[in-house]
Nucleic acid binder design. Structure first.
Length: 609
DNA sequence: ACGATCACG
DNA sequence: ACGTACGTGATCGTG
């Protein structure tokens, strides 16, 4: 047995690292001890839980004074027995550890989830801001420094330094560091001691602030989304390999064109800007740092293409601009999507993207590794990579204009409420309110952009750029919107006034406190609308599971649930899911649009049979 | 590490 | 007094 001591918040704590079964004599007593909650953590070879070479190395259990660091290779059975005892656990980022324990030790995450707390969830409820946004952040280190001990070690950073000293990198160290390295064992133990202490510092606060109901909901939701992550999505590997080859070839072809104009690296904005200038193009827009801007919005007009990449015939296309656009897009899709899919698949050709159930400041969910919420929607080729399980079809149901409906309900704007009650398309209704019943297609688009701009708190210049109209027209559009829907602006001003004279925050209908940046109070409307829409989708996930339809779910995508169902009943299943998603929010109908997508996800975006 | 860019809702 | 587009994740170049 290796025994280490460490002072945390003025108290001497003990880290125990058993080396043989006899060392576990006191462990049994520890696990059966009086603590109501034990902290739990794991150390593994990396984040890629489902890749064939992934291994669980350590499992740590601890309370405020004592941590047991157990080798998974020696003590798997002891760990299983300990976790099977009916007691509660707290982890920081519970989902990761639960998925690891499920994958490597066969501990069902559903059962563990019902008696687990997550300090990250609690911290997010108290302050969702990252360090970059001026908050404490949501990592164990900064939270411990604030709530437990200002001198708490940065275990992640400390380990990275130890990795380097031993000749490993940040990426290889987790797998390569000797399992009995003293710093590794010490920090593994300290992580659970800190988590346990953090829990007892912030859990009472969450209760005192009245956030217990949200905490309960988020902990439950997190388990359901972990189930989706464990399920994953099936990848059509031969298709993705072909797609990658096609995209790489396409990128190479256009890189050769760009090289003819002296651009050896299409990703170098400086090179592209210089070559375009040399060809006689004038670049007027600049980035915040003052460099010439050569993004898609600048290059498309130079290439005589519209936003749908169709020929405009407004000017002779600049061949360099077009080559840069096409090679960059093809390369990005090849690397960020096709190659990443191949790299991240498990032994059964499934992808298990990380679902951050409670991620953004607004509590919006995120999906990473790979970013499945951000696949191209204007082109079916990337989404075509994901296929339903054998005999099943991909299905989906999305909320119809959920943010505008939420805005109507929260603001109580009579015109917008009436339009929804009459069953109208909201953007049609906005266009009618602005331009009368005979509005044109461009006018509808402008109305839609104006509505979004209003939610985001945007000005006329941004609206003009976004909608492709003059600033003068954008100003008129904003005035027409304000006249037709006066309740929206009034609602926004109310939120800002309240924040100006009270706490710099907005409280959502679910009781979530969203901090505002003092110089961006105007964002209050967007925050509460975005957050409420998120809460509606989160509730839908819970409701779909409660209705016994959870086995079908694949992924949440902000206002949509992606799922699969046996081909013969796919229509029935997604109609039922859509019905479960529907609700009434403060008297306003939240409607859904169910759809059978097809054998692949791409079939909803124009993929051929 | 950070800015620029681009993918989504 | 005025005006501010919101939220993510991933990659590449640059220093």
């Amino acid at each position: 047995m290796i025994t280490l001591t460490h002072v945390v918040a003025g108290e001497t704590c003990t880290v125990r690292f058993p080396e043989r079964p006899a060392d576990l004599y006191d462990f049994e007593g520890f696990v059966s001890g009086p603590d109501k909650v034990l902290a739990l953590d794991t150390e593994t070879t990396g984040l890629d839980i489902y890749s064939p070479g992934h291994r669980l190395r350590l499992v740590q259990l601890g309370n405020a004074r004592e941590a047991w660091v157990l080798r998974a290779d020696l003590f798997a059975e002891h760990i299983r027995r300990a976790l099977a005892k009916p007691r509660h656990y707290v982890a920081h980022n519970w989902t990761y550890d639960a998925l690891v324990l499920n994958q490597h030790l066969g501990i069902p995450l559903e059962e563990l989830g019902a008696r687990s707390y997550d300090t990250r969830v609690l911290a997010h409820l108290l302050d969702p801001r990252t360090t970059a946004e001026g908050g404490i952040g949501l990592s164990l280190k900064p939270l411990s420094a604030v709530y437990v001990d200002p001198d708490a070690p940065d275990t992640q950073e400390g380990l990275t330094a130890e990795f380097r000293r031993l000749g490993f990198t940040k990426a290889t160290g987790w797998a390569g560091i000797p399992i009995d390295n003293e710093l590794y064992v010490r920090y593994a133990g300290l992580d659970v001691i800190l988590t346990h202490r953090l829990f007892h510092e912030i859990a009472p606060t969450v209760r005192d602030v009245g956030l217990d109901h949200l905490s309960k909901f988020e902990h439950h939701l997190q388990v359901l989304l972990a189930i989706l992550q464990r399920r994953g999505m099936r990848l059509d590997v031969p298709y993705v390999e072909r797609l990658k080859d096609d995209l790489v070839e396409e990128a190479e072809r256009f890189k050769l064109v760009a090289a003819r104009y002296g651009v050896t690296n299409v990703n170098s904005t400086a090179q592209v800007a210089e070559a375009l200038s040399a060809m006689g193009e004038t670049l007027t827009e600049t980035t915040p740092s003052g460099a010439a801007k050569v993004d898609k919005n600048v290059l498309l007009p130079l290439a005589d293409l519209n936003l749908q990449w169709e020929r405009v015939e407004a000017r002779p296309p600049n061949p360099l601009a077009e080559a840069v656009l096409r090679s960059k897009r093809a390369e990005k899709w090849a690397v960020t999507y096709a190659q990443a899919f191949l790299d991240l698949r498990d032994a059964n050709d499934r992808l298990h993207p990380s679902i951050g159930a409670l991620q953004a400041r607004t509590a919006r969910m995120s999906v990473s590794r790979p970013p499945l919420q951000q696949l191209p929607s204007s082109d079916w080729r990337v989404r075509r990579a994901f296929i339903a399980d054998p005999g099943q079809l991909i299905v989906a149901a999305d909320y119809k204009q959920v943010e505008m409906r939420v805005l109507a309900a929260l603001s109580g704007d009579p015109a917008m409420l009436k339009a929804i009650a009459d069953g109208l398309d909201i953007h049609d209704a906005v266009a009618t309110g602005m331009f009368g019943p005979g509005f044109s297609k461009p006018q509808r688009k402008l109305a839609k952009n104006t509505g979004f701009g209003e939610v985001f708190g945007g000005g006329a210049i941004t609206l003009a750029r976004q909608a492709g109209v003059s600033v003068e027209v954008a100003k008129q559009a904003k005035a027409l919107f304000a006249k037709g829907f006066p309740g929206i602006k009034r609602y926004g001003r109310r939120l800002v006034n309240r924040a100006e004279y009270g706490r710099k925050e907005v409280i959502t209908p679910s009781g979530r406190h969203l901090p505002l940046d003092r110089d961006r109070l105007y964002a209050a409307t967007n925050y509460v609308v975005q957050s409420t829409a998120r809460d509606l989708l989160a509730q839908a996930v819970v409701d779909v599971f409660d209705a016994g339809l959870g086995d079908h779910l694949l992924l949440p995508i902000h206002d949509e649930l992606l799922a699969q169902a046996p081909a013969a009943e796919a229509g029935d299943v997604i109609r039922e899911i859509g019905r479960v998603m529907e609700s009434t929010f403060q008297g306003v109908a939240i409607a859904s649009d169910p759809e059978v997508v097809g054998p692949s996800w791409g079939h909803g975006y124009g993929a051929p049979e």
